[in-house]
Amino acid sequence: MTRNIVTALQENQDRILDQWVNQRELSEDFGGNFNSFDDLKAQSSELLTAVLENMTAENITDLYASDLEPLIEYVSGLTLSRAKQGFSPRETATYIFSLKDALLKVLGELITEDPKELYRSTLEISKFIDNIGIVSFETFIRGREEVILGQADEMAELSTPVIKVWEGIIAMPIIGTLDSARTQVVMENLLQGIVETESSIAILDISGVPAVDSLVAQHLIKTVNAIRLLGADCVISGIRPEIAQTVVHLGIDLSKMVTKATLASALRYAYGILQLEVRKAGKEKSNL
């Protein structure tokens, strides 16, 4: 694209803007999401200024040119703010691609004599706007991924509560797959809980763990050893029959750990160690 066409487009910015905001699909799609037509026009004007100011005859074919940084930043910011306002990706993409129509229409009015030049310029502008659209998509997806990562962190936090079951007994139900990162959190929380409550028995309930492989078993063994170092005992409960089968088939040795089938039997074992007795109230009276 020649330099004077870029200049001509820049000079005709107002015409392009009018052309753009008056497109039918734009006013239909965004009528509900924008407070007024003026808002739409103001935002479109900003984006158009950013596009035209940063577009030169050289960088129009090269999106990675360093002088396009401000434009890319502006588009990223715009996409993020639109995503927060509740626009769908389709709406944002339509918005950006509709700029192409406006630009091409004005371009067609500017170049009337030379069809070859018109064809070449059209191709280049088309590619340029497509690239802006891609940037917008990337930003949108990155924003979503950040949300997902944040939620994963929150889930890891939520799913490892330390419960004080009795004086000197704490329990931790593990729900979900045990991976290295989870084990670290589980171990830290459980050890901290033991120190804080001065408990001598910790029950690790794995009924919510979907599968136990050799890695998970390794993590469990580590946790049990760490608990022993603090001076407390650890009982692993909630071992389902399938898990017992897998463990034996994999040849994992859990014989050094105390394992119980249910939380109830783990609790009974803990009471036994603490020399506590649970019985029905008033039983002795009835015997008398």
Binding site: Q184, E188, L191, K222, A226, L229, L230, G231
Partner: peptide, 14 residues
Amino acid sequence: VVGMQPAVAITLIE
């Protein structure tokens, strides 16, 4: 050995 800190226990295990 008494009063081991959780962080110390984790380190020793690791």
